[in-house]
Design a protein around this nucleic acid. Structure first.
Lengths: 139, 139
DNA sequence: TTTACTTTTGCAACATTGTTGCATTTGAAC
DNA sequence: GTTCAAATGCAACAATGTTGCAAAAGTAAA
């Protein structure tokens, strides 16, 4: 799957910004922030364009947004895009990386009567194995 | 339990800002944002003072912070203050209220080897019963 | 290929929350 | 009351979110 297929299948115009973001995200091994994505892109785009691109890609369920903390936002490819399940995320407070914990699925919560669930976020915070090692490689 | 007891038991100076925040939070039925707390306070405090008060109260595990979305932060009394367990939160996207779901405890996650968990957040988003009713009272 | 129209982009401006430095004020211990 | 550490208010700035509008780009049709 490539960015052209993704955009076409969602009836979205193929712009270099959108293609670049999707290409980066499809090969990313972890969730990336706006700036991390910008650094991996060839073109130079205005922040507003980025913002609107993310918004569009989110609305079409291509990317999903993980709010690690206030003012710390990461993006990842929506698991639904590849048929995967919603899952928990791990945030390392030392190296600021976000890992998808695909082995921890998100269960349907038992809500009070009359309540409707639309999304659930399960965020586990702590320190990853690399940062806990004697000689950690902090980024 | 009142604000004076809370501050004394944590060896914190009794300032009117801290007392006011704690008094508001002890009687709050739901998690409140910075502005919602400010509106319920008598005194007038600088944003920085608020920020530092919340930080101090969080560090002493008196309050805890619920990040609903980027730029949407709510505070609630730490369940540990009354011996309660960590629990999930429900966020209504219509009326912006955050409800503590004390009946949904947060379980210990099974992390990859070498990972250390320090906090876990389980946030369920959707619409509350009031907003789903035929004549909802939106705030 | 050129034209025409819709959508996207870049720029400017501003909102919210977080954060620090520093001088002044306040709390509380004596 | 005096004294000193801690908290406050103010100013300034950072990151992310958001909108309006004119210019540019994508796409479909002629």
């Amino acid at each position: 799957m490539n960015s052209i297929e993704v955009l076409n299948s969602h009836n979205l115009k193929r712009t270099s910004c959108r293609e670049g973001i999707i290409d980066v995200m499809l090969t990313a091994k972890e969730a990336l922030s706006e700036n991390e994505i910008r650094d991996k892109l060839l073109g130079n785009y205005d922040r507003t364009t980025f913002y609107r691109s993310f918004k569009t890609l989110e609305e079409h369920h291509i990317l999903h947004r993980i709010v690690v903390d206030n003012l710390k936002v990461k993006y990842a490819v929506n698991p639904a895009l590849t048929g995967a399940q919603a899952h928990a995320h791990f945030y390392c407070k030392e190296c600021n990386t976000v890992l998808c914990l695909t082995h921890i699925p998100i269960q349907n919560p038992l809500l009070p009567q009359g309540y409707l669930q639309t999304e659930t976020e399960l965020l586990i915070k702590g320190y990853c194995s690399r940062c806990l090692k004697p000689n950690p490689h902090h980024e």
